[in-house]
């Protein structure tokens, strides 16, 4: 990943970091991976208090609904930064780039930008979020199993048993979290990022909200009985293989396309 450092502008390196952290949360909804990680972002241009993000998808015919979600999420994440008043999104080389760019930048609802589309974005997003929740659960639970927790202990966990270190961003490499086990009798230290990623998605979907809710759930959203832990975990693995497998298809398409378009990325540029 290239990065145009601007050492003579105090504070701007910090802004770049925070832009990256924000965009790290913008995922391709089908692959549950960040658009930065996936290499979709061509450039982010910062001009005073506005930002422009340009991106290209692996094919010109990728689902417009997915493209829409990524564009809206990127706009909202960028605008959540105090330094950015307005973000403009520019999807490039897509068969519906005009509808998407105008719709997202004019803040229209999807149905107005695509009057022909039947169905709406919200339910598509909810379905994909729920799959991402299960896939992330698999990754998080693998960490807990590796740390020595039993099926019984894992299925009994609640959000109250999970503590992230307050001083460290849980998304950072090396950040740790503590899991309280046996009614708080002892605690186990695990990598924070997979747990944090899981909890955020679970909460997006509406699970693991209250302190005494179950932390992990079945694909259907029920608490996990200890005897069904194994099956639920295997279904989580399957959800994970699905997203990474499809990720392989998209990655191959993306690599080939970027080569064809001669497009590297991403670069953060300062216009002045």
């Amino acid at each position: 990943m290239s990065h145009t450092a601007t050492p003579n502008r105090p504070g701007s390196a910090g802004l770049h970091e925070r832009i990256r952290a924000r965009l790290d949360r913008v995922t391709d909804p089908e692959l549950d991976e960040s658009i930065l990680e996936l290499g979709y972002v061509d450039a982010i241009e910062i001009n005073e208090r506005t930002a422009t993000l340009r991106f290209t998808l692996p094919t010109a015919w990728c689902s417009p609904a997915f493209a829409w979600m990524m564009a809206v999420d990127a706009r909202d994440e960028l605008e959540s930064l105090p330094e950015i008043d307005q973000a403009t999104i520019e999807l490039r080389d897509h068969m519906h780039e005009q509808e998407i760019n105008e719709g997202v930048n004019d803040r229209l609802p999807f149905a107005d930008a695509f009057p022909d589309a039947d169905g709406e974005v919200r339910s598509v997003r909810a379905t994909l979020d729920d799959k991402a929740r299960l896939s992330r659960q698999y990754v998080a639970v693998e960490r807990l199993l590796a740390a020595g927790l039993s099926a019984e202990q894992i299925t009994a966990l609640t959000p109250a048993d999970l503590r992230f270190d307050r001083d460290v961003d849980p998304r950072m490499e090396g950040a740790r979290a503590a899991i309280a086990v046996g009614d708080g009798a002892f605690s186990v230290s695990v990598p924070a990022r997979p747990l944090h990623r899981y909890l955020r998605k679970a909460r997006d979907v509406g699970y693991a909200i209250e302190d005494d809710d179950p932390l992990f759930l079945t694909p259907e959203g029920e608490p996990i009985a200890t005897e069904e832990f194994e099956l639920v975990h295997r279904r989580g693995r399957l959800a994970r293989t699905n997203v990474t497998g499809q990720g392989g298809v998209c990655e191959a398409l993306n690599e080939q396309r970027r080569e064809k378009l001669d497009r590297d990325g991403p670069v953060i540029l300062e216009a002045n």
Partner: peptide, 10 residues
């Protein structure tokens, strides 16, 4: 197979 078409209806 993969989602190419149609718009948002799966």
């Amino acid at each position: 197979g993969p989602t190419i078409r149609p718009l948002n209806k799966d």
